[in-house]
Simulated assay, not measured.
Amino acid sequence: MTGTSIMSRAGFTSDPFATWDSDREEYLADYFVPPPYFPSVLGDPTAPEPTIVFSPRGTGKSALRRMLEVKSVSDSVPYLAIAYMDFEWAGSGTPSVEEHHVEIARLVALAILSEIEAEPTEASFHINDYDRGVLKTATTALLSTLTATQFRAAMGSIKNRHDKANDWDCCTDR
Results as ranks from 00 to 15, higher is better:
residue 43 G to H: 06
residue 46 T to E: 09
residue 43 G to R: 04
residue 92 S to C: 03
residue 33 V to F: 06
residue 8 S to D: 11
residue 93 G to R: 15
residue 17 F to H: 04
residue 59 T to Y: 04
residue 5 S to L: 08
residue 64 L to Y: 00
residue 34 P to G: 10
residue 104 I to G: 00
residue 174 R to P: 09
residue 122 E to T: 08
residue 156 G to Y: 00
residue 104 I to K: 03
residue 51 T to M: 12
residue 40 S to W: 15
residue 116 I to T: 08
residue 36 P to S: 14
residue 36 P to I: 09
residue 70 V to F: 14
residue 93 G to V: 09
residue 10 A to L: 15
residue 55 S to C: 03
residue 81 A to E: 05
residue 157 S to W: 00
residue 165 A to R: 08
residue 62 S to H: 04
residue 151 F to K: 01
residue 174 R to C: 05
residue 55 S to M: 03
residue 116 I to M: 12
residue 49 E to R: 15
residue 99 E to G: 02
residue 44 D to W: 11
residue 80 L to G: 02
residue 100 H to F: 05
residue 75 D to Y: 07
residue 32 F to A: 01
residue 141 A to D: 11
residue 17 F to E: 02
residue 9 R to W: 03
residue 45 P to G: 01
residue 127 I to K: 03
residue 7 M to F: 07
residue 49 E to I: 11
residue 16 P to A: 12
residue 3 G to I: 11
residue 48 P to L: 13
residue 69 E to D: 09
residue 44 D to M: 10
residue 148 A to V: 05
residue 134 V to W: 06
residue 117 E to M: 14
residue 68 L to M: 15
residue 67 M to P: 02
residue 172 T to M: 06
residue 90 A to V: 14
residue 173 D to K: 10
residue 4 T to R: 12
residue 140 T to L: 11
residue 128 N to S: 10
residue 36 P to M: 02
residue 124 S to F: 13
residue 20 W to H: 07
residue 72 S to C: 10
residue 159 K to P: 00
residue 96 S to H: 02
residue 93 G to Q: 05
residue 59 T to C: 01
residue 58 G to Q: 05
residue 112 I to L: 12
residue 84 Y to M: 01
residue 81 A to F: 11
residue 96 S to M: 05
residue 106 R to S: 01
residue 104 I to M: 14
residue 149 T to M: 08
residue 1 M to L: 12
residue 109 A to K: 03
residue 150 Q to S: 13
residue 50 P to S: 08
residue 164 K to D: 07
residue 117 E to G: 15
residue 137 T to K: 11
residue 106 R to Q: 03
residue 42 L to C: 08
residue 23 D to F: 03
residue 9 R to L: 13
residue 111 A to L: 07
residue 63 A to N: 05
residue 49 E to M: 14
